[in-house]
């Protein structure tokens, strides 16, 4: 019975979220804002998969967002890839970066793991700053949106919106499935008590690496999609502040909840959009929110809500 109630809450939340998002273009909300938020929501969800469910606090997750962004921007603009191929390439590039950095980072625990990921992210940042194909400070501008699957013209905003929504939902469902899979069970057990998992015969590094690569790939999917939306890839997406921002999104929404990162991303992106007039004060407000999260609602918005209603969200 208890289990059923949980499932119901999640189903209702999913229908609500999908319905709301599907209606966006009809209720006069600026679709570019929502598309951008959806990309960040997927990015935050991928990060949450790693930290909230895998217990691996990466401080360099922007490297996957940015790597995928540069790869797909270059593929679409210079090599003339259609958008779906550019997105797939970007995703694979991020997953590949995940294999290499993950294999080294997961040998360390806790803060050392975080510092290793941060170090790799910084190395990649300087690589992208120097290497010619990214055009340094200028970034890759004017990325063509192209025709999705040879059918859907992405330069039309409605088409673009629903394709982005589709990609977001696919990523979201995949993350949900990963968490509730046999693999997710082992990952959960490792996060709960790694020595015990080893003593049961699990080679925990392999599970952690798999989680790391999946998370990197999904962050890449978000980064590649974002490039198709914004039509440019820039250093912002690989900067360490982006790795920090995604931490804030996940903490604000609710670490280890399915819907928390989505809400957190929307709130942070909305703040940046609508408080833009305050200039640098946006950062101060973000800082205050972060302090409030840590001090009074550690479970995040969705986490506190789920706790109050005794459901899982």
């Amino acid at each position: 019975m208890k289990l059923q109630a949980r499932t119901h809450a999640q189903t209702i939340a999913f229908v609500l979220m999908t319905g709301l998002l599907a209606c966006v273009p009809m209720i006069g909300i600026y679709p570019y804002f929502v598309m951008q938020a959806l990309c960040f929501a997927l990015f935050a969800a991928s990060f949450n998969l790693l930290i909230g469910y895998g217990g691996l606090p990466s401080f360099g997750h922007a490297m996957f967002l940015g790597t995928a962004g540069y790869a797909s921007a270059h593929a679409a603009k210079v090599w003339g890839f259609p958008p779906e191929a550019a997105i797939i390439l970007g995703t694979l590039a991020a997953a590949g970066a995940g294999v290499i950095t993950g294999a080294l980072a997961i040998r360390r625990q806790g803060i050392y793991f975080s510092m290793t990921t941060l170090a790799f992210a910084q190395m990649l940042y300087f690589f992208y700053l120097q290497t010619p194909f990214t055009h340094g400070e200028d970034g890759i501008q004017g990325v063509p949106q192209g025709i999705f699957l040879g059918l859907i013209d992405l330069s039309k905003v409605l088409n673009l919106y629903y394709v982005v929504l589709g990609i977001f939902l696919a990523g979201f469902v995949l993350i949900y499935r990963i968490i509730h899979s046999p693999f997710g069970e082992i990952l959960n057990a490792i996060r709960e008590n790694e020595p015990r998992a080893i003593s049961l015969g699990y080679k925990t590094e392999r599970y952690k690496l798999a989680a790391f690569v999946l998370s990197a790939g999904l962050a890449g999917l978000a980064g590649a999609t974002k490039v198709i939306v914004a039509q440019n890839a820039s250093l912002t997406d690989v900067h360490w502040t982006m790795s920090g921002e995604v931490v804030l999104m996940v903490l604000l929404g609710g670490l280890g909840t399915i819907y928390g990162p989505i809400l957190g991303a929307f709130i942070i992106i909305a703040m940046q959009q609508y408080f833009a007039g305050f200039g640098q004060w946006v950062l101060v407000i973000q800082g205050l929110i972060f302090i409030a999260c840590v001090l009074v609602f550690r479970r995040g918005i969705i986490g506190e809500l789920a706790h109050a209603l005794k459901i899982r969200l």
Partner: peptide
């Protein structure tokens, strides 16, 4: 099949 991340845990 413990790396099956695409399968539902109901198989368990």
């Amino acid at each position: 099949g413990n790396f099956d991340f695409w399968r539902s845990k109901n198989v368990l």
